[in-house]
Amino acid sequence: MTCTQVVGRDQGGCAVTNFRDEGDPTARVANVGTVAMDISRDGVTQFYAFGTTGALIPNVPLDSEGPKSVPHVCVTCHAGSTSKIGVQTDLGSVFREFEPSVLDAPSTRTRPELDTSLFFLNQIVTAANGKVKTFAEGGPPSADHAAAAQLAYLNGMYASVFPPRAFDIHAEERITSSWRAGSGAELIAKRTLWTQVVNPATFLILESGTGNLGRSVRLPSRRQRSRVQPQRSLGIA
């Protein structure tokens, strides 16, 4: 994963090149594809996908369902909408965080080294989202919410910054503010649902949509709540 030190309007970007094995780059084994993002001159986030040879490709197979189109496949995690893609390229998407607690250090680097790299990358992400076109500038209405939600998520990610240490993705400190409202059994149920299911499974996906999900969640019944058990991972990458 690489970002330029500054990602701004018509400046720099981020890219992730994927390999089957960690040693492939050193052994000069071909990569299996690259995805990238940058910001246009007028503040529009843009997505790219490249195949093994570096050629731009329209579809990427990121799951067991086969290839899906760019940028439709991107907005699931990066927020935004493709509903007006025929007339505009501004999807209202944002840069996503690099989540320390779900990324392992390669064998060539220590955990603290990785945490430091991810911390700096997350600072770049934060700054980049500040350059994305706002609603007041003519961007989609959802853009402001997505950027604000991403900022709030990143602000709550770290327990300390010198050295960088992120909360685990299951930690209660990671519960977003809208899920902290309530009291008693309701609050316990929301806390459990968030720490054991929602955050590990989806990270920011749900929060970065067009609305504030926490306000509309229907909680399970008392009988259902009593049966909720911790769920460590749902395996959604």
């Binding site: 090149t17 390999f19 094995d21 299996v32 195949g51 390669p106």
Partner: peptide, 13 residues
């Protein structure tokens, strides 16, 4: 452009 092989979601680059 040509189809890419399966892209591993586990990023080990």
């Amino acid at each position: 452009p040509r189809p890419a092989p399966f892209i591993e979601m586990r990023m080990n680059s």
